[in-house]
Design a protein around this nucleic acid. Structure first.
Length: 235
DNA sequence: CGACTTTGACCCGCGC
DNA sequence: GCGCGGGTCAAAGTCG
């Protein structure tokens, strides 16, 4: 397992007047279960993808994803439901917690590996271009890839699908989701790479303005138990 | 019955 | 101006 590689992550809409991504985390977590405890992470059979996919060993999530101790030792969930990502404003880089950083820089010189990646890079470029023209109308975006047999990754939030489109040069459609929470306007796009069908590209747009329901569901009984155990005992 | 998915239609920005 | 491609809408269908 190569924890020193950085996952393939892109960030859009940086340096805007919109709320920034939740950052930074105070100190690098040392507990290896941190990664597994993120409420957004997919099923135990999934893995994060590192930039050099062909050479890096994917980080396969393990059964301790749902390890309650890991959950409790993890930092609080991010408002966006996406990983706690440290963002280096000076170098336009984002970093994944728990991974020592060799952060991936968005570069025009980067060699795209597939039509989807070309499209993603193009999209980022256009978003960056338009955001410089109209800085108030952009929202933070994070694109990341996950190796998973499932298209729908359980990130702890509830999503409603509102569209699906076939994408040029891709045999897999792109699905569009909105957060089901009535006051929340976060969207995500999910698309499987045609070049490597085991990879799912997920794009989050916006920041959740409500807690992660699944995490709260998980924690509520525990908190009740803690309250019960710590109640004053009458002798 | 409410929440969600499916899917064709529509809208809009962009390149030519 | 036109066509293309991506994103969204909304009605109908499905599911628990």
């Amino acid at each position: 397992m190569n924890l020193r590689s950085s996952p393939l992550l892109f960030m859009e809409g940086r340096d805007q007047e919109t709320p920034p991504l939740p950052l930074p985390i105070p100190s690098p977590p040392t507990n290896p279960s941190f990664l597994f405890a993120q409420p957004h992470l997919p099923s135990p059979n999934s893995s994060l993808i590192f930039p050099n996919i062909s050479h890096s060993q994917p980080l396969v999530l393990q059964d301790n994803l749902h390890d309650l101790l890991g959950l409790l030792s993890a930092p609080p969930p991010t408002p966006s439901g996406i990983p706690n990502i440290a963002h280096d404003n000076t170098n336009d880089q984002i970093m994944m917690p728990s991974l020592e950083t060799a952060p991936l820089t968005i570069s025009d010189n980067a060699v795209a590996r597939s039509p989807e990646e070309v499209a993603i890079k193009d999209k980022i470029r256009r978003a960056a271009s338009s955001s410089s023209k109209n800085r108030k109308n952009t929202v933070p975006k994070v694109v990341f890839q996950t190796r998973s047999p499932d298209d729908i990754l359980d990130d702890g939030y509830r999503w409603r699908k509102y569209g699906q489109k076939s994408v040029k040069n891709s045999k897999y459609p792109r699905s569009y989701y909105r957060c089901s929470h009535h006051t929340c306007n976060v969207k995500k796009q999910v698309q499987r790479l045609s070049k490597d069908t085991s990879i799912v590209v997920t794009t989050y747009e916006g920041i959740h303005n409500h807690p992660c329901e699944k995490l709260m569901e998980t924690l509520s009984p525990l908190l009740e138990q803690i309250q019960f155990l710590t109640r004053p005992v009458l002798m």
